[in-house]
Design a protein around this nucleic acid. Structure first.
Lengths: 334, 334
DNA sequence: TTAAAAAAATGAAACGTTTTGCTTTTAGCG
DNA sequence: CGCTAAAAGCAAAACGTTTCATTTTTTTAA
C-alpha cells in the first residue's frame, strides 16, 4: 500500500542504500538528491518507523513517568517538553502512575517493552528501585523535580532550588516585620516538602527567630489539603500574621478558605502562594507568589534528554533552576 | 543482547512458528506451553514491538490529540483512558495542539508517521479537515466531547448531553424561584458553549421567561475569563439573583471574584458551577454543580476505541452521557 | 487395527529498513 | 591524457517477528 524505500529506488533508478543514505542525511550527488525528493513527493513516501526501529534498535520515543496527570505543575512542564521533543521527531509516551510505587515500577517496564530510547521521571519511589531495569540497559534516565539519593551521580536531574525559594519567601515576610509566619508544606516524606521547609527554617534562624511547630502544617499538595491546613493554622495559631503556602493546589485551597472566613488579605493575613498559574493573575488583591520557571524546567529537561539521546556521553548533570518571587499585594508591612 | 524468539526456539527445541503462535494465543500442546513459559522466564524474553509492528502493520499505539494539556477536564479523562488502554497493551501518544488548527493538523500527521492504530481527538478545527489523512487510511477515529458536523456518520463520538445538563441546571434555579439568571458560557464558536447556552434558553422558554442578552456572558473557559465575566454580569445586570457557570476553570474564577467582592453565597447570589473536581469539595458553602462523568467518558472512549482496534467493524456510534446535578448549598430558594 | 479427520508443529518467505564491505564514478593534478 | 584519491553508489545480509502452505502427530470413528 504505502510507498517504501524500494519504490523510491525503482522510481529513481538508485539503490536502496542510496535512498537510505539520503533519509539519514548522507552525502550524495545533487541530481540524485533532487530525483529522490521528487519521488518522495510523488509517491508520498514516509519512513516506516517500525522497520527502522527494528534495524536500528531506536524507537525515537521517550517515556515520561509522572505521579499524576491532573496536576498543573506537571502538565505545564510536560507540555513544553513534548513540544520540543516532537520537533526533533521524538514522540512521548506518558505514564501516570497515580503516586503508586507499584504502578510506577510497572510503567518503567511497560515503557521498556515499548522500547523507549529514554525515560524522564518525576519519581514517587524514593530509592529508585523502579529505574533499575532502565539503568541496567543503559537507557538515558532523567529525574524531574526530585532527585533520588541512591542514584546520585548515575542520572541527570532538573531541579528547582526549593530551599532557596522558600528561604527567599520567608525572608521577604521577615523583612516586612512578620514574626509569626505559618507555612503549609506537602507530605513529610517528599523531597520538595523537606527542602521548602528547610528554607523556611533557615530564614527564621537567620533572624534568630525560633521555629514553632504550631506554625508548621503538613498538607498533601491538594486543594482540599490547603483548605484544611490553613484552617488548622488559623485556629491553633491565632497570632499568625502571615502564611506561606508551598504549592499551587494548596494555595488555591487556602485562598478559598481565607475568603470564606472573611479574613482580609493582606490586612489581617499576609499570604505568599506558589506557582505562577491562572490563580495569581486572577485573585484580588494580586497574590505574591513564588514563581517556578515551569517552562524553563521543560526546556532544560528536553534539552538534557536530547543530548543524551544523540549519544553525547559525559557524566550525569544536575541542573538547578531558581524560582523568583513575583510581587503582588497580598503581603503587607507590619 | 536481548533474547529473541529464536532463543526460545532453541531453548525449547520448538520452531519459530510455534513460539509465535504461543505469543499470539494460539493452541498448542500443554507440555510445549509449559516449556515455552519456562524458557521465557529463564531468558527474560520480551517481544520486540518493532519487529512485530513491521510484520503486522500494527503499532499497538493510540494517538490522542487535544487542544490543551493543562486542563483538568481533559487530563482527568485522559488519565482513565490511558490506564485502560495500557492494560490492554496499548500505549498512548498525547499531542497537545494548543488550540491551534495548524498544530492539530500537524499532530495528526505526526501520529500517522508514528503509525498509530487509532486516533482519539477532541477537535479544534470545526470542519474535520485535519482528520482526513486518518480517515483515508481507514484508521479508527474517535471524537471526544465535540462532534464534527461534516464527519457525522463517519466517526464515533463520546459526548456529554450538554444541552440537557444546562437545561436541568437552569430549571433547578427556576424551580427555586429565580428569574434573573445569568450564564457564563465559553467561546461562541465552540460546540459545548452553544449546547449549554441552548439548554439555558430552552429552560427559560419552558417557563415563559424571555432570554435577556444582558444575562449572557461569553468567557473563554479560563479562570481569568470566569473572574472577568462574573464581574461584568454583576455590574451590568444588578438584578441577577443566580448565575450558572459552565466549566470548571470559569467556576473557579467566578468564585474568587464573588468572594473578593464580599458577595454572600447563596444569600446574595445563588451559584451553580461545573465539574466535580477539587473545588466543589472544598468551597464553603459547598457548591451546587453540574457534574460531568469524567471517568465514564474515559471508559467509554477507551472501550469504543478498543472495539474498533480489535477489528469490530459496524458503523460509527455516538455515545452520549448525561451529567448530573450535585446538590450543594450554593443555591437558595427565593 | 486402521483409515480418515483434526490438531499441532514446521520451514521458509516475507515485512521495510540500515549497514558493511566493495565497486564505480568523479575530481584533482602533474 | 592518465593516474590517484576521494566521493558516491551498490548488493546483500541482517534485524525479530508473523504467516502460509506443508508436514507430522494425535484423536476419532469404523
Amino acid at each position: 500500500m504505502a510507498a517504501t524505500i524500494k519504490d523510491i529506488a525503482r522510481e529513481t533508478g538508485l539503490s536502496l542504500a542510496t535512498i537510505s543514505k539520503y533519509m539519514n542525511g548522507g552525502a550524495l550527488r545533487e541530481k540524485n538528491r533532487i530525483a529522490i525528493e521528487r519521488a518522495i513527493k510523488k509517491l508520498d513516501y514516509h519512513v516506516n518507523e517500525y522497520a527502522r526501529g527494528l534495524k536500528s534498535n531506536k524507537s525515537r520515543t521517550v517515556g515520561v513517568v509522572i505521579p499524576e496527570l491532573s496536576n498543573l505543575f506537571i502538565t505545564q512542564i510536560i507540555s513544553v517538553m513534548e513540544r520540543i521533543l516532537q520537533e526533533k521527531g521524538y514522540s512521548v509516551i506518558i505514564c501516570d502512575c497515580q503516586t503508586d510505587e507499584t504502578r510506577e515500577c510497572r510503567a518503567v517496564k511497560f515503557l521498556m517493552g515499548k522500547m523507549v530510547d529514554g525515560i524522564i521521571n518525576m519519581p514517587v519511589c524514593r530509592d529508585g528501585r523502579h529505574l533499575k531495569p532502565a539503568l541496567e540497559k543503559e537507557l538515558p534516565v532523567l529525574l524531574l523535580d526530585r532527585p533520588l539519593e541512591p542514584l546520585t551521580g548515575l542520572v541527570s536531574c532538573v531541579l528547582i532550588d526549593n530551599e532557596g525559594a522558600a528561604r527567599a519567601a520567608t525572608r521577604r515576610l521577615l523583612e516586612l516585620g512578620h514574626r509569626d509566619i505559618g507555612i503549609i508544606v506537602g507530605p513529610k516524606d517528599i523531597y520538595t516538602s523537606q527542602m521548602r521547609l528547610e528554607g523556611y527554617r533557615r530564614a527564621l534562624e537567620e533572624y534568630g527567630i525560633p521555629v514553632r511547630q504550631a506554625l508548621i502544617a503538613y498538607g498533601d499538595y491538594t486543594v482540599q489539603g490547603g483548605h484544611q491546613q490553613i484552617g488548622r493554622l488559623l485556629d491553633t495559631a491565632p497570632g499568625m500574621s502571615a502564611a506561606f503556602v508551598t504549592n499551587y493546589e494548596m494555595t488555591l485551597g487556602a485562598l478559598i478558605a481565607v475568603n470564606e472566613r472573611g479574613i482580609a488579605i493582606p490586612k489581617e493575613l499576609s499570604l505568599i502562594g506558589f506557582d505562577n498559574l491562572d490563580l495569581s493573575m486572577v485573585a484580588r488583591p494580586r497574590l505574591t507568589i513564588v514563581s517556578q520557571p515551569l517552562e524553563e524546567i521543560g526546556i532544560q529537561a528536553a534539552r538534557l534528554m536530547l543530548e543524551r539521546l544523540s549519544g553525547e556521553k559525559g557524566s550525569p548533570i544536575t541542573v538547578t533552576l531558581s524560582s523568583s518571587i513575583q510581587e503582588g499585594e497580598s503581603v503587607r508591612r507590619l
